[in-house]
Amino acid sequence: MSNDKLEVSGGASFSCNCADSSRRQLMAATAAVGGAVGVGVAAPFVASFLPSERAKAAGAPVEVDLSGLQPGEMKTVEWRGKPVWIVRRTPEMLESLKKSEAMLADPGSSRAEQPDYVKGAGRAIKDEYLVCVGLCTHLGCSPSAKFKPGAESGIGDDWPGGFLCPCHGSRFDLAGRVFKSMPAPDNLPIPPHTYVSDTRLIIGEDTKGA
């Protein structure tokens, strides 16, 4: 553009050096404001890719009744379209968490996605109940429950009981913590949740005061 020779009618040709700087300033100002307006115009289009009110309403908190859940059993509920596991852990299962500690990638869950009010090895508000999102942190498959410890599990003699991902073989213990040198990098996420009573749990809502 800068050294254009503009041919204008009547055979009058001229180079636009004289007007160049004012034109260039104007061009820059127009481009800047035009660009800003363009970004503004793009905004609703980009925003329309975000989850809609319907999707948000579908992702509303889910209430779970725990009264029917026996020790050692697991229940899967849907929250925001994802499986959320609730495992009622027996004392033996809780004991196994200590055993697995040495084999874990992140035993203290320092990198894990979990609310502040979930603490310790059990990763739970009440140690008896594990509540976690059942999607592998590798590529999002849902791991299978392998609660039986030892050789019986078919995984290995030293298997403390936990979860095995069918896709790429990542292993997690009964607190959803990932074992060392597995494809999955991190522990299973713990969703925000709160107890409204001893047997009623709300997933998707943070414990108040936390």
């Binding site: 503009l6 009547g10 007007a19 127009t30 035009g34």
Partner: peptide
């Protein structure tokens, strides 16, 4: 807001148009 932004742009594009067209005889 949109009208305000477009007004600024209208002024600028008008000046730009004038800057170019002053050479057309």
């Amino acid at each position: 807001l949109v009208l305000a932004a477009l007004s600024v742009l209208a002024v600028l594009t008008y000046l730009l148009k004038r800057a170019y067209w002053k050479d057309v005889h």
